[in-house]
Every structure is written in C-alpha cells, then in structure tokens.
Simulated assay, not measured.
Amino acid sequence: MRKFVLAAAVATSALGLAACGETADAVGETGDAMAADAASIADDATAAAEEGAAAVEGAADEAGAEMAEGAADVEAAADEAAANAEAMVDGEDGE
C-alpha cells in the first residue's frame, strides 16, 4: 500500500512539474508576443508623429507664404494711400 501511495505522490509531482514547465513556456511566448506588439505600437507611434510633424511643417510653410503675400498686399495698399494723400495735398496747394 505504501508503494502505491509513494507512486501516486511521485506521479502527482511529475505532473505538477510538467504543468509548470508548460506554463513557463506559455508565459515566455506571451512575453515575446507582448514585446513584439509593444515594438510595433512604438513604430506606429513614431511614424504617426513624423507624419504629423511633416503636416505641421507644410502648414507652417503655407501660412508663411500667405503672410508674405498679405504683407505685400498691405505694402501696396499703403503705397497707394500715400500716393493718394500726396495727390490730395498737391491738389489743395495748387488751388
């Protein structure tokens, strides 16, 4: 009877160790998969940040060009106003 109890205890221990080994392998595989997912997410985030930076840079360039065009329009309007004012003053002096 003791031999049966001892054999059952050894079998239970062996099964427990085998289960732990399989669990450790599964945990290792899960860890590797999680690390690969994290690396993929980091790569995606980096690509999105680079695209966003490029879009912001493009928008800034466009805004700069529009501001330069607006400044040229303001300068032209100021020159025209100055010329009109000078013509008005010259016209009043001549009368």
Rank of each mutant, 00 (worst) to 15 (best):
G21Y: 09
A39F: 00
A35N: 04
A48Q: 09
A35G: 02
M34C: 11
A55T: 09
E62W: 05
V56K: 08
A60E: 12
A45K: 01
A49N: 06
A36Q: 11
D61I: 15
S40G: 14
E50L: 14
A45N: 07
A26T: 10
E50H: 12
T23N: 04
G58I: 01
G58H: 00
E62I: 03
E51Q: 13
D44F: 10
T23K: 05
A63M: 09
V27R: 03
T30Q: 14
V27N: 07
E62V: 02
A36N: 11
A35F: 08
A63T: 10
D44R: 04
T30A: 13
A36E: 11
D32R: 08
A55H: 06
G31N: 04
T30M: 12
T30D: 15
D61M: 15
A54Y: 01
S40Q: 12
V27G: 03
T23Q: 11
G28Q: 09
M34R: 06
A36D: 03
A38P: 05
D32F: 03
D25H: 11
A18E: 15
D37L: 07
A45F: 02
A24P: 01
D25P: 01
A45Y: 01
D61Q: 14
A42S: 08
A59Q: 13
A18F: 14
A54V: 06
E57C: 03
A63P: 11
A19F: 06
A63R: 10
G52F: 05
E29A: 08
A60T: 11
A47C: 11
E50G: 03
A54D: 10
A49C: 00
I41D: 13
E50A: 15
D37Y: 04
T30L: 13
A60L: 04
A53Q: 10
V27F: 06
T30S: 15
G31L: 02
D44W: 04
E22P: 05
A26M: 13
M34H: 07
E57R: 06
G58R: 01
G31F: 02
D37M: 06
A54W: 07
